[in-house]
Amino acid sequence: MTYSLNHYYQVLGLEPGASLEDINQAYKDLAFIWHPDRLPQDNPRLIEKAAARLKEINHARDMLRSQAPTAAVPVSQPASRSTPSPSPSRPPATPRSQPTNPYRPGRSYRRPDMRDMQGADLRGANLRERDLSGRNLKNANLMGANLRDGFLHGIDLEGANLRQANLFRANLLRANLRNADLAGANLVGADFSGADLSGANLKGALVGGSGDRWLVKLTGAILTGAILPDGRQCA
């Protein structure tokens, strides 16, 4: 069945003409609420209903994103006949080469377009509240990156460098963090439900609370061989 764009705005609870940033934020909020992994696994009827709702939310987001305006690429105009030619004694300046890494540290990334970002250099990158769910970031360097409130469901961060990264309230449901380095990272309020943290280094990570009480959600998480914040290693 074909729907109008207004229908997709309604699915995400938005007014027609909402910005791409509003679309992404609305999707993230609704996906967090309706994801089946957050529901009791002994209630198949509820899980089926949530999965159908999430599918509708995903479709609405994709349809609205495809209609989002993109910046026009300027077209170079031919030089006017009155434009003087460069002096023979002064050759035209050579344009500066552009950085080959599109993920330069310090930049803000609204919507990474590449799903495969394996080995990317994202040191110090501002990825706050971004949706990186399902991305391949194996062995990526995210040292000191800001991932606060990020939606990272199912992300692959195996072997990634997340030292000193800010993962405050990040959603890492079913993420792959095998052998990842999270030493000194801020994990307060993060949700690692169902995540694989086997062999990960959490030494010195901020987890809130006191003693063995962490302000981190680890329901169903795998911690085999992981180094805990106090330096102990899980069996």
Rank of each mutant, 00 (worst) to 15 (best):
P102A: 13
P102Q: 08
P102V: 13
S108P: 00
Y109Q: 11
Y109I: 15
R111M: 11
R111Q: 09
D121Q: 11
L122R: 06
R123Y: 09
N136F: 08
N136I: 05
N139K: 10
L142G: 02
A145G: 02
L147S: 05
L147N: 06
L147A: 06
R148K: 14
R148Y: 12
R148V: 12
G150Y: 01
G150T: 01
L152Y: 02
G154P: 13
I155R: 09
I155T: 15
D156G: 01
E158M: 15
G159F: 13
A160F: 08
A160R: 06
A160P: 04
N161C: 08
N161T: 09
L162I: 09
R163G: 07
N166E: 00
F168C: 04
N171Q: 13
L173F: 10
L177N: 05
A183T: 10
G184P: 13
A185W: 02
N186K: 15
D191W: 14
D191V: 14
D191R: 15
F192W: 10
D196E: 00
D196P: 02
L197R: 00
S198G: 12
A200W: 04
A200L: 06
L202I: 13
K203Y: 05
A205P: 05
A205H: 03
G209A: 12
G209R: 11
G209L: 14
G211Y: 07
D212N: 15
D212C: 14
R213Q: 07
R213K: 10
R213S: 08
R213L: 12
W214H: 11
L215Y: 13
K217H: 13
K217E: 11
L218D: 00
G220D: 06
I222S: 01
T224G: 09
T224V: 09
I227F: 02
L228S: 05
P229L: 11
P229H: 11
